[in-house]
Every structure is written in C-alpha cells, then in structure tokens.
C-alpha cells in the first residue's frame, strides 16, 4: 500500500515547526505504524535527510512511549490501542495520514513528534507513591484487600502514563492520568496513610504544570490505550474536595 504522510517536523524545542509531506511507498499491511515510519526514515536517511524523530521503547503496548496523534486522534483510530500496536491494515492505500505530536503547553515539543513529558514525572513525585519501610517482605495475606477494591485499583494501575488523555482533551487536561495514579494507590489499604497529602500534592502539581481543567468531554477515556474510565476523575474530585476541607485535628 502507498500512503501520503503529513508529519509535524520541528528541529528543536525553540525552532519553528511545520507540517511536511512524505510519500510512504510499498507499505506492508502487516507493519505496525512505527515500523511504517521506520521504513520512511530509512528512505529519508538514504536521501541524506533528517529522519522523523519519534519516541518508542517496548513496542508491545505497555511502556507508553509511542506518542503520536494520528488523523487528530491520540494513538490513532483503534480503541484501546497504542500507536505501536496499530497496524497498517487499518488504513487504506492512497490515504493521507496526519501525524502530529501531543499538543499541550505542559508537554513542549522537543523534536518532531517527541514531547517532554517530565510534567507527569513531577506530578508523580508530588505524591504518587507509598512510603514503606524496607526490610523483610511481609506475608502476602498480612493486609487483606477486598476483591472489588483490588479490581478497581488494578484498572487504574493499568495507566502507562503515555499522555494520550492530555493530547485528546480539548482543554489539554491531565485529570485522567492524575485520577488513575491517585486512585490505584488510594483504593488500597496500603495507600491510606498518605491519601490526603497525595491527592492534594498531585493536584497542586498538576495545576502548577499548566494543564487545563476537566469539562467531562469523555475524549480521554475514548483514546486511552488502557480504557481507563472517567469515573476515576469523579473519584479524584471527591477525594480532593474531601482532603481539602479536612484538618489535622
């Protein structure tokens, strides 16, 4: 199959960027989207041109590195799928495909399709952990966890921090990411001790990073490669408001 690619090219963080057109010829329908770009990049390098810079790591849908907005949709047209797990058979030969980086003030473009997602790291550092004394591992059944809570925590813990929620949100809001990170710890007994400081700290950091507010559009859930529900956002709202009005005594 042959495709026309419209790709955002930007040499560096401070440089101006623009959409450039490339022809991808003889693409196999069995290639992943990233492999297709690999092939285009081979051709570009043969021609002495700068290859398209994009982030990738595991290529099996669990690391969250492959951040691309494909035809206006974060991670492309398939539901619950990362870009690396998207195959070219889902496109038609002759199609024009727009490939753009995540767009958010908090995710500045570093080069072409690569954005700086350190804002997510700083949000995590503001409370997205459980402080536990190291030592001998306790028996697995020392602290019992209710099945429903374990399932709900596990669903939230599926978040791979890819940032598609921010890319898809019309407000570039990071609420789904923060909700998932707050919830997967806050739903478990081990996460109760730091529950209030965690949610207050992470939301404050989220706001300081310049992400937008949640309008309950539902775009984030629709593009999330792990289908994390916006119900966690409502849970985050509740958790945050409860923590904010509570006092130490």
């Amino acid at each position: 199959m042959n495709l026309t690619l419209k790709v955002w090219r930007q040499p560096s963080k401070s440089a101006e960027g623009s959409i450039q057109t490339y022809e991808a010829k003889d693409v196999s329908p069995d290639m992943s989207f990233l492999e297709m770009i690999d092939v285009v990049n081979d051709t570009l390098m043969e021609q002495g041109q700068e290859p398209i810079a994009f982030e990738h790591d595991c290529r099996e849908g669990i690391c969250g590195a492959c951040s691309m907005v494909i035809n206006g949709v974060a991670h492309g047209p398939n539901k619950a799928t990362t870009t690396c797990q998207l195959y070219m058979r889902h496109f038609k030969s002759g199609e024009t495909i727009y490939i753009e980086p995540w767009r958010a003030a908090a995710f500045p473009v570093l080069k072409d399709l690569i954005v700086d997602r350190s804002a997510f790291d700083r949000i995590q550092q503001a409370g997205g952990y459980i402080s536990i004394n190291t030592g001998c591992a306790p028996d697995a059944h020392t602290t019992q966890v209710e099945k429903d809570a374990a399932d709900a925590a596990m669903s939230a813990a599926e978040c791979i921090g890819c940032g598609a929620c921010v890319a898809a949100c019309k407000n570039a809001s990071a609420m789904l990411f923060v909700a998932a990170k707050v919830s997967h710890l806050g739903l478990l007994p081990h996460g109760q001790a730091e529950r209030k400081t965690r949610v207050l700290g992470m939301v404050e950091q989220m706001d300081d990073e310049g992400f937008g507010a949640c309008t309950n559009y539902g775009e984030c859930e629709a593009v999330c490669p792990k289908s994390i529900s916006t119900r966690y956002i409502s849970r985050l709202n509740r958790d945050y408001l409860t923590a904010s009005i509570s006092s130490e005594i």
Partner: peptide
Amino acid sequence: KLQLRNRAARPLGYAYEATVEASWASRYM
C-alpha cells in the same frame, strides 16, 4: 477563568482536528 486557563493549556492546536466522544453541547458550553 477556566476558559482562559484551558486555552492557555493548548497554545497550538492540531492541524487535523478530530473529536471521538465529546458531544456538541459539551464542546460549545
């Protein structure tokens, strides 16, 4: 206040705009 913040959160939009889930009513509040 929220509208100004949300606009500032995405200074540069997408060349190819698409909507998957959001209703017309939600986008034009």
